[in-house]
Amino acid sequence: MNNSIGKTFKKLRVSQNITLKAAVHNIEQLSPSRLSHWENDESNIPLNKLDQLLENIHVLPNEFAHLVGQRYVNHLSLQVQDAFIANNIEELHMLALNQLKKYNHIQDNTELFLCALTCNFYYQKTKIDIFPMSLKEKITKVLTSTSLWNYYHITTFGNVTHLLPDELLYKIAVKLINSFPHIKDCGMENHIFAFIALLNANVALIFKNPNLAKKLLHKICQLEIHQFDYYSSLYLSIVKNLLNYQQTKNPKFIKLAQNIVHFCKSINKKDAALEFEDLISQIQQIS
């Protein structure tokens, strides 16, 4: 393995005050001294140990790959997004069930995150919750105990919003908001993903508890949207109009939301347009 990877790993580990001993916890044939040698360019370690090391320091493989200049693509996430956009409920169900089975065999946090993602997308289409309570408790423990919101925690939260109770959802969202200054300092990607995760939480609360949704939206509006993040600006406008419609039942807010959809189509942002159309349809159905 490239020694620059060891240096990057060490920087992340030290920044979180994680000891060498904690970093190699439950990893066979990898001692603190061997890890230290790798971090300091004095030896190599087997590539198959890296995912376990990253899990122990709370960093996802794609986040780490980005930091060391490599590209990581999670094909399951892409499959789920494609099925969601195509309204392929049968495919979403199959992907969710397969991922739950996989987690039963490989019980690590990355697979848990993917379980949440697949079940969350399936729920949005069907309102059927197939995410086991035991896994909800594990996700909740991760999100409520973290003091460092990295890519893993942000995206996990953003993809479990429809599966958590409203009060807990609001509590975790506020925790994320309170960490926003640090998140901004971690770069554009985390800044954008954190804002989108909060909007996802707000959408879920519009369905579950509009009063809490209003409180959360007020806090979100105090945050800064990244200057290159066109999507969150549009998404925020959609959320405002859907919440107003949910509370007043005034059709003018649906019209305003539809105008945003038309704008997305006019600038060739078809995926965003389809996503916003789906939200509008869901709000109209429950009203």
Rank of each mutant, 00 (worst) to 15 (best):
N211T: 15
I192G: 05
S145Q: 14
Y151G: 06
K219C: 11
Q282M: 14
S33W: 01
D41Y: 04
L176S: 04
Q70E: 15
H162V: 11
N200G: 12
I283E: 03
M133F: 09
E42P: 04
N250R: 06
I106C: 09
I154H: 01
S134C: 11
I130C: 09
L212G: 02
A96D: 04
S43N: 05
L114I: 05
H37Q: 13
Q16W: 08
A213C: 06
T19K: 04
K102C: 11
L169A: 02
K208L: 15
L92I: 04
F131G: 00
L163S: 05
G6W: 00
Q99M: 14
C264E: 01
F207G: 01
K240W: 03
S134N: 12
K141L: 15
K269D: 13
H58N: 13
N40D: 09
S77A: 14
L92P: 06
M94P: 00
L30T: 00
C115F: 07
L76F: 06
N259G: 14
Q52M: 13
N17T: 07
T156D: 10
I283A: 09
Q29M: 09
L242N: 00
V24C: 04
K214R: 13
G6F: 00
G158N: 02
E111F: 11
C221L: 14
K141Y: 15
Y152M: 10
L274H: 07
N178F: 11
K252M: 15
L217Y: 00
D278C: 10
H182K: 13
T110G: 11
H37Y: 06
H37E: 14
C264P: 05
I27S: 04
S31V: 02
